[in-house]
């Protein structure tokens, strides 16, 4: 079935992901002298906001290029977030989320936008349009990958799914 179960269900429960929120505010900030973040900076920021699973330089470069293509001003906001985190010496997701910075709506939206890119594997204008970067390496699969499949990839031979009961019940 084509447009059936999956997509309609997705659209029915999901909210807009704020990839591109607060662009105007970001633009305003850029007037204050921040310059756009470079790929290495985005790589470091990603590790600080997301954690070690975002430590992939090649992917960071690809996300950087995708933001450049879809919404270059995001790279200004990212520079602003990176600068603020550096000032406050925040270098882990735990530290960031516990900080006042994470309550700042603009900075938080930037963190969510960056996280969304890594988790969904793309930078998007909307649900249909954007720049794909990774599928298998999108971070959304990781939290379930000890049991679930990353769709289209094999995780075992025939009937592996019938042999997971013990593992699942163990927790």
């Amino acid at each position: 079935m084509g447009e059936g179960i999956g997509r309609r269900a997705v659209l029915s429960v999901t909210l807009a992901v704020p990839f591109l929120a607060s662009t105007r505010m970001a633009f305003a900030q850029s007037q204050t002298g921040d310059s756009a973040i470079d790929a290495d900076g985005l790589h470091r920021l990603s590790i600080a906001v997301i954690g070690p699973r975002a430590d992939d330089r090649l992917l960071a470069q690809a996300y950087h290029a995708a933001f450049m293509e879809i919404e270059p001003s995001f790279l200004l906001r990212a520079a602003s977030l990176a600068a603020a985190m550096k000032t406050q010496n925040l270098s882990t997701p735990e530290a960031f989320s516990a900080s006042a910075l994470a309550q700042d709506p603009v900075q938080r939206a930037t963190a969510v936008g960056l996280t969304a890119a890594w988790y969904l594997g793309h930078v998007e204008h909307d649900v249909d349009h954007g720049q794909p970067v990774a599928f298998e390496k999108a971070l959304m699969w990781g939290p379930t990958s000890d049991i679930m499949v990353t769709p289209s990839y094999a995780r075992g031979g025939p009937d592996y799914w019938a042999r997971q009961t013990a593992q699942i019940e163990k927790g």
């Binding site: 992939d56 330089r57 090649l58 992917l59 690809a62 794909p132 970067v133 990774a134 599928f135 298998e136 390496k137």
Partner: peptide, 10 residues
């Protein structure tokens, strides 16, 4: 290794 593995994108 991770850094070298191809994504579909590449």
């Amino acid at each position: 290794g991770s850094g070298e593995a191809l994504t579909g994108y590449r």
